[in-house]
Each structure stands twice: as C-alpha cells, then as structure tokens.
C-alpha cells in the first residue's frame, strides 16, 4: 500500500526534515505515525500526497512510484487517499450535505450516486439529521465527523488523518478513533499522524515514531514513546 524506500527530505536552506526513512505499510493496516512537532510528520504527509518530492529515495503509494507520476496524474493518486485534518477544512458557506457532495462532484460522480452515497455516509458518522446544518452550527467533534465522511465519499483505499483529534476533547477524540477503527475494519488502510499519547496507548496498533526526521522505532503493537 505504502512503501518508503530510504527517503530523505532536505528543504532549501539545508533544513533536513526526514533522514533515510524506510518502512512498508500493507493493505488494511492501521498505523500511527507519532512524534513531537518538528519530527517530520507533516513533511511525510506531504510526500505521500505528492505535495512535495523527496530529495532522495522512493515513495510508493498504491503501487505507484510517485517519482514517475506526472503532474496530470497527481489528482488520480489523491482520489484514492481520503484526507482528514486537525482543522477539519470544511467549506463554511455550504451545508454538511454539500461539503460531502462536493468531494464527489470534484471527481465527477453522477448526481444519482451523490444522492445515494451522501445520506449513507452521514448515517455512518452519526449525523443523519444534520445534513442541512452549516459547519459553524456543529461541535468540533461533529465537524471532524463530517470531514471523515467527506474523506470516505469516494471510497478511498486509504485514509490519511493528520492530527484528527488535535482540536477535540477526549470524548470526541475517542469517538473519531472509534470511527477510524470501524473504517479500518471494512478493509480501508488507515494512517494517523498524531502526538496524542492517550489515544496511541489505548489502541495498541502499529506505531512508527519519528524524532527530528529520523525514524526511531517501528513497533507492531506499540505505544507512545516519551523518550524521544
């Protein structure tokens, strides 16, 4: 599903964000990427979405070596990855329904598919009766659930969540993680970038730890390692 082969990333000015990162994530896995700020988590996300190109090494996403993907091919890679962000990134001038439908319109889904799929997703994330609300009428947890529904709209093979619980209280954080587990249970690969210690320790999933761009550990049933 994802393969990083000796990937390094040095920003102009000499700042080394990632140094010789090497890991492989299989289809259907649930993986945490943890580390404090400045550890290289965000750079890693950007590499997986081909927002950046590595200085050296190879990034393979769903059997596509990203170094060979042309500019025109990038959207088609991104369509297979559902992304969730700490700040939700919902369109405030549109309803919850339209926010989710928007993701499907972008990939030119038919109106009929949108009509069927959006209510299905709203039910899945427990917001069946909130379709007509605007994002600012929802709580943080509800907004993140909308973002999750939007990420799932086009049935991606993988969910990439960047600090999905960063703006949420513990209850809402647990709810989001429960949903991510559910999604993973249906076969979707889930990659969560976080520094939320409690959640990582609760879930006993694979944990890749980064510190100042270096991969410190990769444990199959790991926890949050404070020593880094």
């Amino acid at each position: 599903m994802i393969k990083l082969d000796r990937v390094s990333m040095v920003y102009p000015g000499g700042n080394r964000a990632l140094d010789d990162i090497d890991f492989h994530i299989k289809k259907g896995e649930f993986v945490f990427i943890v580390g404090s700020s400045g550890s290289g988590k965000t750079t890693l996300m950007k590499l997986l979405l081909k927002e950046l190109n590595p200085t050296s090494g190879r990034v393979v996403v769903m059997n596509n070596d990203l170094s060979t993907v042309t500019h025109k091919g990038i959207p088609f890679i991104r369509r297979q990855i559902g992304t969730v962000f700490q700040d939700f990134r919902l369109l405030k001038d549109r309803t919850v329904y339209d926010n989710i439908a928007f993701a499907m319109r972008v990939v030119e889904a038919s109106a009929k598919d949108i009509k069927v799929r959006v209510p299905e997703l709203l039910s899945m994330v427990g917001l069946a009766n909130k379709g007509n609300c605007h994002p600012n009428e929802l709580s943080g947890g509800e907004q993140q659930r909308v973002a999750l529904a939007r990420a799932l709209a086009n049935r991606p093979a993988m969910i990439l969540a960047d600090e999905p619980t960063g703006n949420l209280d513990p209850n809402n954080s647990n709810e989001i993680m429960r949903l991510l587990e559910q999604i993973n249970g249906r076969g979707t690969t889930v990659l969560v970038v976080t520094h939320n210690r409690e959640i990582v320790n609760q879930m006993h999933r694979r944990v890749i730890t980064l510190n100042r761009g270096i991969m410190m550990s990769d444990e199959m049933e790991g926890g949050y390692r404070d020593e880094f």
């Binding site: 979405l49 500019h71 025109k72 959207p75 088609f76 890679i77 991104r78 369509r79 992304t83 990134r89 369109l91 928007f102 993701a103 972008v106 990939v107 030119e108 939007r150 086009n154």
Partner: peptide
C-alpha cells in the same frame, strides 16, 4: 486547497 487534496484535476 481542499479541491487539490481530494483529487480535482487542473481543468476542474
């Protein structure tokens, strides 16, 4: 920015 992330093409 959201459109880019969810896979909209340049033309779109």
């Amino acid at each position: 920015a959201i459109m880019r992330l969810i896979g909209a093409t340049d033309h779109f």
